[in-house]
């Protein structure tokens, strides 16, 4: 049935782009979230689905397809029909990082039609209180004096938490030991308990611990300071100029989405980034809203893939 509808749609698209533009969206849209329900991306996905539903006048259903750090769900969307009824709330991990580090069946630059990044969240450099440093500069100096002694936790090999620290290590000339955990939350917990010395963790996980002084915050990994932690310097302005490793979530469609649907979605997401209610909802999970054009998104993906490919070369 799905195939028949797809075929009819495809035929309709060939004969008249305008007809398609009027028709889309004619039925329920599925927004695939490639992560488990309740997580950070899931929250962003639900906020986005709610807004798109209002804006496009069609039901938008969130469908969680978790697995392999987001690869399973992203792969599913890459292989879906480019009819605008299957979209992905993709994230940096499975799109920019994983394809560099491991074998996946999609190409981040050609398998998708990127629409826009919707939210960004910086990573926060947190250290266990027993590590005798109070600033990111002291941290780098300490790491240089104690090569191979500082352990860091990550959400698993080949994830953003792992690669961001590797990039940091290669730029600062430090030797840091990778201890993989099964996710971001246990890695943060390990810094609190002292099992590892530090981690570059999601700001959502870091904020409550920083507030309670169970960990020390040293810096954020975004190019600009975060509005949620304005006192923390960036790595970019202190020890590594040009350093940037942010976690983003963006709406992507399978490659070959008709231009009309791209434009319609892009317009909707532009409105969303400026919407007061959305800004407030995203703020609650520690994220800032973002809007970029499909072209800017494509370029950003190319830059990121290049950066992580270079980092992987250095790790090897």
């Amino acid at each position: 049935m799905k195939k028949i509808t797809g075929a009819i749609l495809a035929a309709a698209m060939l004969t008249s782009g305008a007809a398609y533009a009027q028709a889309w969206p004619a039925k329920t849209i599925t927004l695939v979230v490639p992560y488990a329900p309740g997580g950070y991306t899931d929250s962003v996905g639900r906020i986005t689905a709610q807004f798109l539903e209002k804006e496009l006048g069609q039901t938008v259903v969130v469908e969680n397809k978790a697995g392999a750090g987001g690869i399973v769900g992203s792969d599913y969307v890459a292989k879906s029909a480019a009819d605008g009824y299957t979209l992905c709330m993709c994230s940096v991990g499975a799109i920019s990082v994983a394809p560099v580090a491991q074998k996946v069946e999609y190409d981040p630059l050609t398998s998708f039609t990127p629409i826009s990044i919707v939210s960004e969240i910086p990573q926060t450099v947190i250290v266990n209180p027993n590590v005798p440093v109070n600033t990111i500069e002291e941290f780098v100096a300490y790491a240089k004096e104690h090569p191979g002694e500082l352990d860091y936790g990550s959400s698993g090999a080949g994830g953003l938490m792992h690669f961001a620290v590797q990039l940091f290590a290669s730029k600062t000339g430090t030797d840091l030991v990778h201890i993989p955990f099964g996710g971001g939350a246990p890695a943060t917990a390990a810094v609190v308990s002292g099992e590892v010395d530090f981690t570059f963790t999601n700001m959502t996980d870091a904020l409550p611990q920083l507030e309670a002084n169970t960990v020390k915050g040293l810096a954020v990994t975004s190019e600009e300071r975060s509005k949620f932690l304005p006192d923390l310097p960036t790595i970019n302005e202190t020890v590594v100029p040009g350093f940037s490793a942010v976690s983003w979530n963006g709406v992507m469609a399978p490659a070959g989405l008709p231009q009309e649907a791209v434009a319609r979605l892009s317009d909707a997401l532009k409105k969303m980034a400026a919407d007061e209610g959305v800004i407030e909802a995203m703020g609650r999970v520690g994220a800032s809203t973002v809007f970029i054009t499909p072209e800017e998104y494509s370029k950003r993906l190319a830059d990121e893939v290049a950066q992580w490919t270079a980092t992987l070369e250095e790790i090897k």
Partner: peptide, 28 residues
Amino acid sequence: TMGLPTSATMALMIGALTLHGIAPGPNV
């Protein structure tokens, strides 16, 4: 007491609390 989840269900609870504007952590 710590804001740290012990299972997938507890991680969901954290998600639910955060969406309600409460960051579960040592200060909760």
